[in-house]
């Protein structure tokens, strides 16, 4: 049985697609975004970190492993537990990461499993994958949550470690396929919240309409600072605070004026 490396399965996620969802986070990512909220999701191997546990004032250091090899069946069993909530809310399952397409073969098996159980399935992807791998998921995916991080290729390379060319090409092909796609734009202070990035984004999306008509603006938050420390990773975003909400609302209004459906926070 093929196993996939999972770093978390979270219930009652309410920001990753319609309704009440369960989000499966697969571990391993070809990108290394500086603002990554889940630094422990990047490496494609299980990682050990030290966690402190306090009880009655005493402090215990415990080893914690991030990443667990699981079979499709094991994941489905966990997912099935919340079926009544998906049914009532029109929700379902979101596969996220890391980058789920990084484990393309396992992902495909997982998606087949989810689809045979008649679940609504969303794929949260950064789009950096071979078109063939992405295309194979189309039969099983009801909704793509597709990240567009930075429009300028040089900056994209600088801040995420990869070129955005394949990401853009894949989105163009996906949009033409007629699948439902929501574009998610992380609004990172001083990096992607610039006027020029916003203009380029609009120019890029215009020809993809009406296939792509929904945009989520994802505000940066600094909640991951602790995680960087625990995993001994360098947090280059240390001390940076979120873009003010008012600025996000100005962007939202402009996009809505153009006819997009816009949400802040997904």
């Amino acid at each position: 049985m093929v196993e996939g490396l999972v770093f978390d399965i979270r219930k009652f996620t309410v920001h990753d697609g319609p309704g009440i969802r369960c989000t499966i986070f697969l571990k391993g990512c070809p990108l290394s975004c500086r603002w990554c909220h889940n630094p422990e999701s990047q490496a494609e191997i299980p990682e050990t970190s030290t966690k402190t546990v306090t009880l009655d004032g005493a402090i215990y250091m415990e080893q914690e492993v991030s990443g667990k090899w699981m079979t499709v069946e094991e994941i489905l069993e966990e997912v099935e537990k919340d079926r009544v909530f998906y049914d009532e809310s029109g929700g379902g399952v979101t596969v996220s990461g890391g980058e789920p397409l990084f484990q393309a073969e396992f992902l495909l098996n997982l998606l087949k499993g989810l689809k045979t159980r008649d679940l609504h399935v969303a794929l949260d992807t950064c789009g950096y994958a071979g078109w063939q791998d992405l295309a194979l998921t189309m039969d099983y995916i009801d909704l793509y949550l597709y990240d567009l991080k930075l429009m300028d290729d040089i900056l994209h390379l600088e801040y995420t470690g990869v070129s955005n060319k394949p990401i853009h090409e894949n989105l163009q092909r996906l949009a033409r396929s007629g699948k439902k796609v929501v574009v998610r734009v992380p609004v990172i202070p001083g990096i992607s919240d610039s006027e020029s990035n916003f203009r380029s984004l609009l120019a890029f999306l215009e020809p993809l309409r009406p296939g792509v008509n929904e945009i989520n603006l994802l505000p940066y938050h600094s909640a991951a600072e602790n995680k960087y420390k625990r995993f001994g990773k360098v947090n280059s975003m240390k001390g940076i605070s979120s873009t003010p909400r008012e600025e996000l609302i100005v962007r939202k209004k402009e996009l809505e004026g153009l006819g997009y459906v816009v949400k802040i926070g997904g």
Partner: peptide, 12 residues
């Protein structure tokens, strides 16, 4: 609406 579904599901 999501909280409403949460309640409906528990009641189901």
């Amino acid at each position: 609406a999501k909280l409403a579904s949460l309640i409906r599901a528990y009641f189901r």
